[in-house]
């Protein structure tokens, strides 16, 4: 039993990273403006990142590693402060488990199309959809339930982030 305990402790120190986990980086340099709840206390269940600059060049898909991105343009044109709920431009990836990772609100550019890539640009920072200013909304959900565990412990409201900053891990 003692030897098993020793072995377990040693194994804990040497645990490798899970091979299929995907790290999520910030789509552009900015500040985390909301996570699980808004300042009002209302549930948000996602990570919002804003640089404060509308049409800021190059909103990247944040997931590290090659995955297929389904890009939906619902609102062409440059919009910075919202176009109404459900009208956001979106890049999404559906995992085998059925969970979906989404990035919202970007402004359509020539890069806004479906493809497989590793951190590629899908638009510019913007405010399409339900938004009061330009930002990126990163969300993981399944059947109407938002996952908050992927970013908890990795980022928090007010954190300054750049494209190399880890804001969460999906597994």
């Amino acid at each position: 039993m003692r030897y098993m305990t020793k072995a377990s402790l040693a194994a804990l120190a040497l645990l490798p990273l899970v091979a299929t986990a995907h790290t999520v980086k910030s789509p552009f340099p900015g500040t985390v403006t909301a996570t699980t709840n808004y300042s009002s206390g209302k549930f948000h269940g996602a990570v919002d990142i804003s640089s404060g600059r509308c049409n800021y060049w190059g909103a990247e898909t944040g997931v590290v590693g090659s995955v297929f991105w389904n890009v939906t343009v619902r609102t062409p044109g440059v919009y910075c402060n919202g176009t109404g709920s459900g009208t956001q431009n979106e890049a999404k990836h559906v995992w085998e488990s059925g969970w979906t990772f989404r990035q919202w609100h970007f402004i359509k550019t020539a890069d806004s199309y479906d493809r497989t890539c590793d951190r590629c640009q899908v638009g510019n920072e913007g405010g399409t959809g339900n938004a009061s200013g330009p930002h990126a909304h990163l969300q993981q959900d399944k059947a109407g339930t938002n996952d908050t565990s992927w970013y908890s412990g990795y980022t928090t409201k007010g954190e300054a982030v750049d494209r190399t900053e880890t804001v969460g891990v999906l597994d």
Binding site: S66, V67, F68, H93, W95
Partner: peptide
């Protein structure tokens, strides 16, 4: 097909 497309991309 399993990890990049998760079976969701017909052409793959």
């Amino acid at each position: 097909n399993k990890f990049v497309y998760a079976g969701q991309h017909g052409p793959a």
